[in-house]
Design a protein around this nucleic acid. Structure first.
Lengths: 344, 344
DNA sequence: CTGAAAGCGCTTACAG
DNA sequence: CTGAAAGCGCTTACAG
């Protein structure tokens, strides 16, 4: 915490002007005499000089830092999204500031606004609500660069990068049908997200007689249990449960097993977002893998490039595990080890 | 993205000096004529003025923003820690920048260093390793304010805020014994964290003949399964498994159930960190609740107050659920609804 | 109570 | 290729 070395100190010690020192240290201008450059570098090293990022940002009028706002960090999927974005942005030399909206459009609007009090050049937002997030996002977009990730909202007036939900649903349905499942229950939640709406619509478009739809009042942690109970309490069990979210799948699996239902013999279960959660249970759960790095790459490209209002969709990939394919139990547990995820 | 209104614009429009405008808008000086103040406020509002945080930070030599570095975001416990810190810091008007070390001391050192390129006044770090993190933390401490959270490392030379692991272990052991369990297996991992070491030591100090210790090679997602298999494969089952981490407990429960073991009748299972994960399974798992807000409050107090090298410990609270107490199944599922955690 | 001036630590036209 | 100067947008002693 000693008094920090400044550019002026380095310049003085190296016997050059601040201009020259800056040119060398910021690497902005190649045309510096090699001997001088070397001297500046050496002195800088010796004095332990570090550019003051605040001063640089003020002068350059850019912080190279971006904010990301997700509905909630309690949802592991959003954590993985944040993680991927942070990594990709970091590789591009960009800083990231994180915030969450507590799943509430009003808080979301406040956070969006708060980013202006902070050091960000732009914002990536996963909207909480398809119908209620648009206004705040549009407003933020008037002041700063902004892009929607994973979910979009009405009248947001900015770009969107997300996954191809229709394709995802199709992959899952095809997989289930081709393994002989004939009565698929789609398990979703009446929720305000564009992703949820797209998935349900896709399922409806592909469904056949015998299929059903179970909508939970909300995506609570207990929703999986509730869905399982509802299923057990009403007529013959479907032979597949296609969950629109991983948490639903996990809760459902544990409740069904508890009641003596055999998975996957009696009923197959699938998740959707490739969350680590799905490997915590036994059998582990078939899901879609989303190429989060590709998503993040698109977002970063957008943030540092030309602004667009276009839409980018990344195709998910099906990951078959024990919850739909008994033969894969062994393989699945081997994969599991490979895809090691630590805990504390 | 229009040209931003500056303080000078506001001052000009209000017919006052920048000094006065600043005094009003920064709220730093009460002694401003009320009429002038009102005029400034009105004009500022009308022009949509927002203080440029970068310029303010440069002048004030402080960003009011802090970095938090955790071993990994794949561990839900650290996410909850980050979440709590972000919330408490936000309430205190502080910004937060998040980074993770990928569970690697070298990456950790790099991230610590990178924070200097960023806009932080100080750092809170959850060290990856008790023995290998100290050097980098001490070095960072020479340049900036820093504090350790949840885990400490040797020779870090800075303060620490964490939970009282000894008390936590004691609460769990007492609960298990008082419900008639006599052969407790402690399930941990040979891991580099001070928290792990403290928990194991506490268990050893409290253990009786008949108790056992199972140490997994590492805290992989599959560790819970491995522990369960090891248990099933070697003599009579213990009547309680006390896991040093929540992920272990969840993996273990699902594997044991799969093998027909009844929980809690045959064996009780406990977690440690009160992660949401534990409510996803059935029965939900007894654990300790950590008052993360209190932890965060301490950390914030330290960051904005006088630096110390002292240590603060917060007592955990026991949360009894179905995995140790059959009668509580019903109650537990009601709690579950109350402590709703959404998914996407 | 108010304003003119200095300065936070950089970067970048501009002139040489 | 190099340096003197201006300026990014604020805040804060200082003088009045």
């Amino acid at each position: 915490m000693s008094a920090r070395t400044t550019l002026a100190d380095v310049a003085a010690a190296a016997g050059v002007s601040r201009s020259t020192a800056s040119r060398v240290l910021a690497g902005t201008d190649r045309n510096v005499d090699e001997r001088l450059a070397k001297r500046v570098l050496a002195v800088s090293e010796q004095l332990g000089y570090r550019t003051n990022p605040v001063a640089r940002a003020l002068r350059r009028r850019s912080t190279d830092t971006f904010g990301i706002l997700v509905p909630s960090l309690r949802n592991p999927y959003f954590v993985q999204l944040v993680d991927a974005f942070t990594r990709v942005a970091g590789d591009a030399g960009l800083g990231v500031v994180l915030a969450d909206s507590g799943d509430d459009p009003d808080t979301e609007a406040a956070r969006l606004d708060a980013f202006h009090e902070s050091f960000v050049d732009g914002i990536v937002v996963v909207p909480t609500s398809q119908s209620r997030s648009g206004t705040a996002i549009r407003k933020a977009g008037e002041r700063t660069r902004i892009i929607q990730l994973d979910r979009w909202s009405d009248d947001a007036g900015c770009g969107f990068v997300g996954i191809d939900n229709h394709a995802g649903v199709q992959f899952v349905v095809e997989h289930l049908r081709s393994s002989g499942r004939e009565r698929i229950a789609y398990v979703g939640a009446e929720q305000e997200s564009s992703a949820g709406a797209e998935r349900l619509a896709a399922f409806r478009a592909l469904s056949r007689p015998g299929d059903t739809v179970i909508m939970l009042p909300r995506f609570a942690l207990s929703a999986g249990h509730d869905a399982a109970r509802r299923m057990l309490g009403s007529g013959p069990l479907p032979d597949a449960a296609m969950c629109a979210a991983d948490v639903l799948a996990v809760g459902m699996l544990s409740t069904l097993q508890r009641e003596g239902v055999d998975i996957p013999a009696d009923i197959a279960i699938t998740g959707f977002d490739g969350t680590d959660l799905l490997e915590l249970v036994n059998p582990s759960i078939t899901t879609l893998h989303h190429r989060l790095d590709a998503l993040a790459q698109q977002v970063v490209g957008y943030l540092v490039g030309e602004p667009t209002v276009g839409e980018v969709r990344i195709q998910p990939e099906l990951v078959v595990r024990g919850s739909t394919a008994p033969g894969l139990l062994e393989k699945s547990s081997r994969q599991l080890r490979a895809m090691r995820v630590e805990a504390r």
